[in-house]
């Protein structure tokens, strides 16, 4: 198979370049990540992140043939050749396919991604009814891979101010949690031209989420909650 990969070494390169590779995949190579691992045995200067190799850790997000995805969840079968691999769009490139996620995680932390509850804790745990627990489905599964935020045009234009789909999905995860008591504060924080309202419902985020989640739907629900709050 043929691949064309974005290369940039900050120590030697002034500008990024594309490098072509020829690779003969072996029988067990099913996913794009397998091919990349094999490629690394040929050219060990090629850099990319990976860990779990099964869509759990969120570290091998990249732009694959123009769309964001996880290499470990992308089957080799059906990939158009040459397979063009680039780092996540709009993120500063550290080296090759590795991007700087500092800002992405800063947005994540800004929405206070933990339960806030000042009431006296019960003797055992805070219980949820099955219906309350059900509300977290489609939200808690996010692995913070950044496929969505890095595919969102609104995030490209204002990466420092717009929280982005990943952070907003997480924000809604805590807004929906029956055990969290800070909903009003969370909503007040999000009611901002930049933080929430840069989203134009383009839905690029939902298009590329490798976990099949829908940040655009979470954003829609946050907006509705804001309208209800203020009316």
């Amino acid at each position: 198979m043929r691949l064309s990969i974005y290369r940039f070494n900050p120590e030697t390169d002034l500008k990024p370049r594309m490098q072509d590779y020829e690779l003969a995949p072996e029988a067990g190579d099913k996913k794009l990540l397998d091919a990349l691992m094999r490629l690394k045995t040929i050219d060990d200067s090629l850099s990319f992140r990976r860990s779990c190799r099964e869509g759990v850790c969120g570290s091998d997000a990249m732009n694959i043939n123009g769309r964001n995805g996880l290499a470990c969840l992308t089957p080799l079968i059906g990939l158009k050749e040459p397979v063009v691999l680039r780092p996540l769009p709009g993120f500063p490139v550290i080296r090759d396919l590795i991007v700087d996620m500092t800002q992405f995680f800063a947005h994540y932390h800004s929405i206070k991604p933990y339960l806030i509850n000042d009431t006296v804790p019960p003797e055992r745990e805070r219980l949820q009814s099955p219906a309350e627990r059900e509300k977290l489905n489609g939200l808690y599964e996010c692995i913070l891979c950044a496929c969505c935020s890095s595919f969102c045009p609104s995030f490209w234009w204002n990466p420092d101010k717009f929280i982005g789909p990943a952070g907003l999905l997480q924000a809604y995860r805590f807004i929906s949690d029956s055990r969290d008591t800070a909903t009003a504060e969370r909503l007040a924080y999000l009611d901002d031209v930049y933080r929430l309202f840069r989203c134009r419902t383009i839905m690029n985020c939902t298009e590329v989420c490798p976990k099949g989640l829908s940040p655009s739907h979470a954003i829609e629900r946050i907006r509705q909650a804001l309208v209800r709050e203020s009316s």
């Binding site: 500008k15 732009n63 043939n65 123009g66 769309r67 709009g90 550290i94 595919f151 839905m203 690029n204």
Partner: peptide, 24 residues
């Protein structure tokens, strides 16, 4: 200095836009 000089990939012609983005 290095981080400031870090390149970004954001060539819109090399990104495959979903139909919703075109409508948008």
């Amino acid at each position: 200095a290095r981080v400031e000089a870090a390149p970004k990939f954001l060539n819109l012609l090399q990104i495959r836009f979903p139909i919703g983005a075109i409508a948008s």
